[in-house]
Design a protein around this nucleic acid. Structure first.
Lengths: 204, 204
DNA sequence: ATAAAACTTTGCAGAGAGTGCATCTTTGGC
DNA sequence: GCCAAAGATGCACTCTCTGCAAAGTTTTAT
């Protein structure tokens, strides 16, 4: 309404993506400032100048506006995993698949670091971000089972996926805290430590 | 009201514990039957014959009635960890600490398997059960940092705690699915695999 | 045994999340 | 310019969760 250019330049879908991004950004900014419970959907919507009802047309939940596009992430990880040669050990394959996604995060560093900071401050969200995305985890388990020629009910695929997810999460949190350097480097370190069996730093 | 014995035998706190357990059990049973969103707090409370308002005096959230007493679990794990000699490698120390808690679960097998089944069917809850309990994770990280003489901001403590938690979660889910045998045995397997660096089953 | 103190339960009012439905507006195709 | 499809919106409604005040009950002191 306020800007004619966007309406002229963009077509429908363009504007939709724009609104979506604006809602996510506003949600993130407001929650970072005030905390999760001190921000209502009404306020987020107002900041973007849409109705509260419209917010729910874009995101099923307030939380969903904060954690990002987990469906898109899932697809990307699965495609990346499929691209890794089957001969590669399962753990290494997951490492490579995660690396792709993580490189994208590095590209959007500010957004992602803000998101990760918000998320670590509100554990309810943390769950949904990586581990909590049960659908992704399930899909990864099946992909690993297929490539190791094990049953999806076997212990190994579930374990290696859970542990790899933990390694990813640890790297991301560390990155957001500003501890290390590049996210990919932190991810490499995490996976290297896991592959070595997490030797105690005092002895190993 | 219906039973005089309980009122006579138990004093205030006894009755409170009773109500609390009854609410948790009713919640679990109803959600197992119908699904998380098909059960209201009102119905859970009615099943125990208290008001809905009272439910919220016991649990801050509907979810909390389902996932169990995470505070108690936290204390137990931390105490168990403190009892493990400092010389033990961090991963092994966590293994032993978890073993204690897990033995209690085996004692209450029916309750816990029901709980785990409910929880795996509703990923929102999964998060809160293990990984989601950020406070426990934070406390464990600090405990591990202290015993390894590292900073709590170091990468290692966070990583080993996250991975150990993943191993625990994988074992519990497998146990609830009826896959293996005793939970402690499954936990041992998980930790053994992690300590070995999760070698690909095809090569290792 | 009784009264005061402490605690629990409960009802009520209200904010906020989330959903279904009907309506209105915008946009793209013709 | 006009029509059909899609998006935005308002409205009514359910459910979760909180604060507050009014009972009711148990414990403690006397």
């Amino acid at each position: 309404m306020t800007v004619d250019e966007t309406t002229t330049l963009g077509r429908r879908d363009r504007k939709k993506q724009q609104t979506r991004a604006a809602l996510a950004a506003a949600a993130l900014r407001l929650v970072a400032e005030r905390g999760l419970d001190q921000v209502t959907v009404e306020e987020i919507s107002e900041a973007v100048d849409v109705s509260a009802r419209t917010f729910f047309n874009y995101f099923p939940t307030k939380d969903d506006a904060l954690v990002g596009d987990s469906e898109g992430d899932r697809d990307r990880v699965l495609r990346a995993l499929a691209a890794v040669p089957t001969e590669q050990p399962a753990l290494e394959a997951l490492h490579r698949a995660f690396t792709e996604v993580v490189e994208d995060m590095q590209g959007d560093a500010e957004l992602w670091q803000l998101r990760l900071r918000v998320v670590t401050q509100h554990p309810v969200l943390l769950a949904r971000l990586v581990t909590g995305n049960a659908t992704t985890e399930r899909a990864l388990i099946e992909a690993i089972a297929a490539r190791t020629r094990l049953s999806a009910d076997d212990a190994y695929p579930a374990l290696v996926v859970a542990v790899a997810g933990a390694a990813l999460r640890a790297a991301m949190i560390r990155w957001a805290a500003g501890g290390g350097g590049r996210l990919t480097a932190l991810l490499d370190e995490s996976f290297a430590a896991v592959a070595a069996g997490l030797p105690d730093p005092r002895t190993g």
